[in-house]
Amino acid sequence: MAELLLDVLLVLALLSTASAALLSRDLFRAVVLFIAFGLLLSLSWVRLHAPDLALAEAAIGAGLTGVLLLDAVSHFRGRREVE
């Protein structure tokens, strides 16, 4: 029962972070939500008994992609201020 509850909560959290990241007007906010989405996704890989994928998702999907996206956002901001 507890496991089912956890899974349902995980799915709801995944859907809400994903849609919030897509619908967010603020790019920085969207990236932070994307990182949160990546961490939740790695939790769901653990629930699906795929720890290898969970590690890769947390390290590459959430961590490094998040850093690169944050960099891109700050780059855009700098350009917008110059214009």
Binding site: D52, L55, A56, A59, G63, L64, V67
Partner: peptide, 25 residues
């Protein structure tokens, strides 16, 4: 540790490489 763990449990080159890169960042 992740690199070494890859031979007998979850881990491996890609995960270890990503952690290395994160340390570099």
């Amino acid at each position: 540790w992740l690199l070494w763990a890859g031979s007998h449990r979850p881990g491996g080159a890609f995960q270890a490489g990503a952690v290395l890169a994160a340390a570099g960042v």
